[in-house]
């Protein structure tokens, strides 16, 4: 089976996104140190997306071996239920970082805990830093980006990665 078939055939679990996020991080770091900042930003952005999605799914009760597709649909439904559908333009076909961040700070955990205000503020700041430099459509852009931009995105993605347990517990 070739790569495309393997990817499409896989029954994606939440912890697969954890592994994929780590792999994208390593690839992005390789691009960053070889002075290819746009490629690094592109991959760091996907890493951020997967970390936020995982956090949202965990707040909805997912375990590491829960099916990601089931929780993706569940998350969209919950977003509608709590009135986040007004921000559907931020959904960006499922890639919108602000959409997933809003979901993370709007949903209580299964134990009923809400995201502390200071954590929410810091998360918001990091999401804005990434969102102002990353967009899925950059795959069509010849813009090479800058090392400063890539470093800013790197630092914010690192913050999300280090604090992801606090985002879901």
């Amino acid at each position: 089976m070739l790569l495309r078939e393997r990817v499409l055939a896989a029954n994606l679990l939440v912890q697969d996104m954890e592994l994929a996020a780590r792999r994208r991080h390593q690839e992005a770091m390789t691009l960053l140190v070889s002075k290819q900042p746009a490629g690094a930003v592109y991959l760091f952005g996907y890493e951020a997306e997967m970390l936020l999605k995982s956090a949202a799914y965990r707040r909805l009760g997912a375990r590491p071996n829960s099916q990601a597709g089931v929780f993706f649909r569940h998350a969209r439904q919950r977003a509608r239920d709590i009135g986040l559908s007004g921000h559907s333009d931020q959904f960006e076909s499922g890639h919108g970082l602000l959409f997933w961040a809003r979901l993370v700070w709007s949903l209580p955990t299964p134990a009923g805990d809400v995201l502390p205000t200071d954590l929410r503020r810091t998360l918001s700041r990091h999401i804005l830093r990434i969102e102002s430099r990353w967009v899925v459509e950059m795959r069509y852009s010849p813009d090479a980006g800058s090392t400063d931009e890539a470093m800013t995105v790197f630092r914010s993605v690192e913050w999300i990665a280090r604090n992801r347990v606090a985002l879901w517990s």
Partner: peptide
């Protein structure tokens, strides 16, 4: 996850991102 929870407790198992 079940074995880990039995040994380390509920708080620790909540922090598991990969098993």
């Amino acid at each position: 996850l079940d074995a880990f929870e039995a040994v380390r407790g509920k708080d620790a198992v909540l922090r598991v991102s990969l098993a």
